[in-house]
């Protein structure tokens, strides 16, 4: 269950986020990994790496697979689509998808919605 209120939460300003890089955020009780792309689009997925159980995904490397923005787990290198949460490379394990959060960039403000 998500603890993010339906109307969303402002977490930071766009400029608090480094382009092509991940940042952690605490939204309600949910730990969220935020990613600002080079295009200034901001995406969010769960912070927890489902394979290791550690809260580390914001510390992975941002990239793309055939144009879709991706994140790679810093621990065991699984790859997910940042937009859909779909696991693109489970590295020999069974694929486990990520929860994705909606993000609205409102002027300078970054808001995370459930």
């Amino acid at each position: 269950m998500s603890t993010v209120p339906a109307e969303g939460v402002r977490v930071c300003a766009v400029d608090d986020l480094l382009p092509e890089c991940g940042t952690g955020a605490l939204v309600g009780e949910d730990r969220v990994a935020l990613f600002r792309l080079a295009s200034d689009e901001v995406l969010a997925v769960q912070q927890r790496d489902p394979y290791s159980g550690a809260n580390v995904l914001s510390r992975g490397i941002v990239g793309d697979v055939a144009g879709a923005p991706t994140i790679t787990s810093p621990l065991l290198k699984q790859v997910w689509d940042l937009r859909t949460g779909a696991c693109l490379d489970p590295v020999g394990k069974d694929p486990v998808d990520l929860r994705v959060y909606r993000v609205v960039v409102d002027g300078e403000d970054v808001r995370v919605l459930p």
Binding site: L37, A38, G63, D64, K77, V79
Partner: peptide
């Protein structure tokens, strides 16, 4: 091409 990945960026 593209924005890179966990292989080429490092």
């Amino acid at each position: 091409q593209g924005r890179g990945c966990a292989v080429c960026k490092p």
